[in-house]
């Protein structure tokens, strides 16, 4: 009896070298759920666009900068990283870096464009599930990492540790949101919680270590910026004048 429960997870873990299991593909969740996630994401998109318009009125470099950072997030999130222990690959989200530097609303736009590119060119994620994927990666990931970073800084933690924690939480909360979306979209009446548990369990072996790697990447990126181009961190309000 036990093997019936263990087998699918074993196959999931062993069958693929590139388990890009992060973004929800087209066709998995129903049309109603897709529309619901789009509806939830639209206000964030428009707030993000409003923010970009306002900022680019005073600074002409802002739009090209967002374009470049989106390209960077796209590159980070298509890097399949083999996760130690389980022998599968997954990929970091890259939203922690963008939300810390650009702020959460603009980071939603960065994620939206990166996800659209992934869906169109690489068949990672999907077009009808774009709303759901933007919600998990763009909204949940960006806002959590930004909030954690700011909270840690207020508590007096250094920029590196704050970045590390923000990176970890961006990854873990994104996957938690994806698990919830999958469970709510696939579950029949009454089996939502058990399905959520199974899906979360399937994500744990890859996402637990990957979250820590993403934290390391975010901290490393901020450390390098702090050492070499502190002016960028000051310009983007990541650091205050006297801040460390």
């Amino acid at each position: 009896m036990k093997i019936r429960w263990i087998l699918p997870f074993l196959i999931v873990l062993l069958s693929s070298n590139n388990a890009f299991a992060m973004h929800i593909a087209d066709g998995i969740i129903s049309l109603q759920w897709s529309l619901l996630w789009f509806a939830l994401v639209i206000p964030f998109i428009f707030l993000g666009i409003g923010k970009i318009k306002k900022l680019s009125e005073s600074e002409l470099f802002f739009k090209p900068l967002i374009g470049l950072l989106t390209a960077l997030v796209f590159i980070i999130s298509v890097m399949p990283i083999p996760v130690p222990i389980v022998g599968t690959c997954s990929h970091p989200t890259g939203v922690a870096v963008s939300s810390i530097i650009l702020g959460p609303f603009v980071s939603v736009i960065v994620s939206a464009v990166a996800l659209l590119f992934q869906a169109l060119f690489l068949a990672h994620g999907g077009l009808t599930t774009l709303g759901a994927n933007i919600f998990s990666m763009g909204v949940v990931g960006s806002f959590t990492s930004y909030a954690i970073f700011r909270l840690c800084r207020k508590m007096g933690l250094g920029i590196i540790l704050a970045g590390f924690l923000a990176g970890i939480m961006a990854d873990w909360t994104t996957y938690a949101a994806t698990s919830f979306q999958l469970a709510s979209g696939l579950a029949k009446e009454g089996e939502m919680l058990s399905l959520l548990w199974k899906i979360s369990l399937a994500f744990v072996p890859t996402q637990l270590p990957l979250g820590i790697i993403e934290g390391g990447i975010t901290a490393g990126a901020l450390l390098l910026l702090y050492k070499r181009r502190k002016d960028i961190l000051l310009k983007m309000n990541v650091l205050q004048e006297e801040g460390k």
Binding site: G216, G220, L225
Partner: peptide, 16 residues
């Protein structure tokens, strides 16, 4: 992990 972080950081600097 540190090298990969530096890689992303260096790309950020290049980006700016």
């Amino acid at each position: 992990v540190r090298s990969f972080g530096y890689l992303v950081g260096a790309l950020l600097i290049k980006t700016f």
